[in-house]
Write a protein that binds this DNA or RNA. Sequence first.
DNA 1: GCGTTACAAA
Length: 582
Amino acid sequence: MITAAACCNDIDFNLIKQLHCFAIFGGFDAYTSVTNAILTCYSRKGFLHEARQVFCEMDGRDEVSWNSMIVAFGQHREGLEALVLFKEMISMGLRVDMFTMASVLTAFTCLKDLVGGKQFHAMMIKKGFHRNSHVGSGLIDLYSKCATNGSGMLECRKVFEEIPAPDIVLWNTMISGFSQNEDLCEDALCCFRKMQHVGFRPDDCSFVCVISACSNLLSPSVGKQVHALAMKSDIPYNCVSVNNALVAMYSKCGNLQDARRLFDTMPERNTVSLNSMIAGYAQHGIEVESIHLFELMLQKDITPNRITFVSVLSACAHTGKVEEGQKYFNMMKVKFGIEPEAEHFSCMIDLFGRAGKLKEAERIIQTMPFNPGSIEWAALLGACRKHGNVELAVKAANKFLELEPYNASPYVMLSNTYASAGRWEDAAKLKRLMRERGVKKKPGCSWIEIDRKVHVFVAEDTSHPMIKEIHEYMREMLRKMKEAGYVPDIRWALVKDDEEATEEEEKERRLLHHSEKLAVAFGLISTEEGVPILVVKNLRICGDCHNAIKFISTIAGREITVRDAHRFHCFKEGQCSCRDYW
DNA sequence: GCGTTACAAA
């Protein structure tokens, strides 16, 4: 009964407590297996403290008790505690099995300790444990989550191939690994198909992973097909995690209406369901609805978590609601006992920064209870760029650079701040520095799906078969745009770092060939009058394109949605849904 | 042993 309770989604703290008391009164706690189940039950529902208490008070601990406690620490992001327990287990001469190994791997993963994990991997190869599916999934999880240079999934493939009898969890771990890597989502889908090919029926976990991968595929329509597949499978229609993944997928694929419709018809909802919908509204620039849903959540006694507050605080930041943001920040600590983490502080910096209160934003960095990381400096730098505070921008960029010397963002952002202030030489100097240090910016590209075929564009792209028509359309469009009052903003023109000076006319021409403009133009040419189009870009949309597409939406009389790396921009009759906050 | 949700930055 207790094991069953551990698997149940709806069980709350009081019910576990009751079961626990029942076991004690009935004398069942003398059975180690019963107490082990209670321990796991507490841990799975998020009550680490109680789980630990059960473990400490147990008389006859067996190997399973130790393993369960190690897992509990790992799942609550207490990797060090897990490793301490493992060492104790060894020193006591207890038998270590595959389950122990897999649990210890979870600890390395949550500590992001790739070196320690690798050493452990080597030891398991010596003992031959690495051919076990349980251990294998721990290893794959480790490499997919901890490797920083993108080589992680290569290592995962090797681990996978060593395992003679992969089970469904191992397949799911591979799909999950691919899906967490933005650029490998196509591989996640491939893996999902392959697993069915060798005879596995995907379970709820497989669907959750593959659906989340669908948000990052080139074609936004695949998600719908996978949804249909899930409905035909034997996954229950009320499976919360699958439905949550679908809500997130629809909203990330630009289909907020379908996301909301699904959300409304869900028979069961939890914190994550609300988080997904709240984030969906925020990404589409409907922050008011995000905050409304959050208030509703509080009324309905659905407990918010740290992620809820990240979304809500950023929604406040985007709408300039400084006071409300502060109110929610305090509520998080006082009412819900959630300690603010780097993400929350970065939202607060953003909240003040966007509103032009740079002093307050800087004060947050100075008074934070831990050392600020790159995300806090990035938020401050973003605010400085927006409000043209060069001096503070230099400081923030330097701090950011110290922490992430190979990240292109601080260079680009500071360079843009200089350029906006008219300090062109400083901007150019920074670009040179970037080249000298071998820091590369990801090339921007945009794509659009037309009749289930994806068309990809990069800046200055001439490879598309219809490029002549596209250029012609854009030239004509430019004429009409200028008539309507559009002024090209050449600060956004791509300047190659080896060019000292570029003619204005040439800059204007380059602006016209930005990937997002090409994709929009192609979309307009290839679809019927009045049909809305959706363009996706891998980076953030450029400022000139943002302005230009407003004009295009009016002139062409179309609804044009651009999903950039960050959010949605829905252009309609000369306005963007982001209200220029981006 | 695997899973859903978020921020800032290109």
